[in-house]
Design a binder for these strands. Structure first.
Lengths: 167, 167
DNA sequence: TATTGTTATACTCTATAACTATA
DNA sequence: TATAGTTATAGAGTATAACAATA
């Protein structure tokens, strides 16, 4: 358990991180904003998946996911095939054009980081990535562990989407 | 200089960090969104300053700063006094009410982090904060060092604001 | 003429709620 | 009745451009 002053310092760094995020956003292609880039990256990393799985990985509401996905589908970067096992679902898959776009994204961001972090060692980059991964994990763990009722959180409580109205 | 795969991993962590940011945003008081909180925090940390200095610390355009500042001034959390040395400028200063609001913010965010990072050591928290500070510094350095003409970047190039039209 | 700060407008990301079509 | 996904609407953050007051 750390000191309060350390948490305050950490919060300040979180806030300042926005500037880094914005600079990375500026190098994106015109019709591929951050949300689209995130979807392409996750599909490239984890392979074909359903909307709900993608929403979970993005850690945003399904409605948000739906809009990002529609945007990149309009541009032919992904295909949405019906899921034979469940006609409500759609399977998302990168098209060759999507892969090309993803390669372009990777090229640009990698190049920017290579410039900006030219004096960072391989080990330091790994440390930062590792600590940020652990940070995310610490927040994820608590999302299911903390809620009011300590026992067996329901599927609805863990869901990333707007709860349906239980009339 | 690190490997391309490491940069890609780092980018993924940057993207996932949004979930942490959003969770922190959810605990803010109703009339104190993230932008207002950032302004209060910087004024508490660095003391009285002018709009332009604040915009630089926030690393956003002055127009954005102006809106955040207007929001918290409307609530009586800061005073905007005319700068005797330059009548175009305004000096921003936390009011006692602003300090109270800032204390409340600090209390809430500290408490959330204490919960989420309960299994992090003091040293680990410090490492993450340190690496993020260095990350920001690496990006800042390049902002003034990289532009097209290598020699003596003009004031306009370093400014955080929309350049005036030079008619 | 240049700079400080404000305002108007537009774009991106997000969440909530209501809706559909399946299950 | 519950779930997968879509769409409409609203709120926050940001950037660009045009503007007023002052240097």
């Amino acid at each position: 358990m750390a000191e309060k002053a350390q948490y305050e310092e950490l919060i300040r760094q979180f806030s300042a991180f926005g500037a880094v995020k914005r600079e990375l956003g500026r190098i994106l292609p015109a019709d591929c904003p951050g949300g689209s880039a995130a979807v392409l990256t996750l599909l490239g990393r984890h392979g074909d998946m359903r909307m709900s799985k993608l929403a979970e990985l993005l850690a945003v509401d399904m409605s948000v996911t739906s809009r990002h996905v529609a945007h990149i589908a309009d541009r032919g970067w992904i295909e949405r095939s019906p899921d034979p096992a469940d006609k409500r679902s759609r399977i998302l898959r990168l098209t060759p054009e999507g892969q090309t776009q993803l390669d372009e994204l990777s090229e640009r961001t990698t190049q920017l980081l290579a410039h900006r972090l030219s004096d960072w060692t391989d080990d330091e980059v790994g440390q930062l990535a590792g600590l940020m991964a652990r940070l995310r994990a610490s927040f994820d763990d608590c999302r299911s562990a903390v809620p009011p009722r300590p026992a067996a959180p329901s599927a609805a409580e863990q869901s990333t989407r707007t709860p349906a109205i239980t009339t």
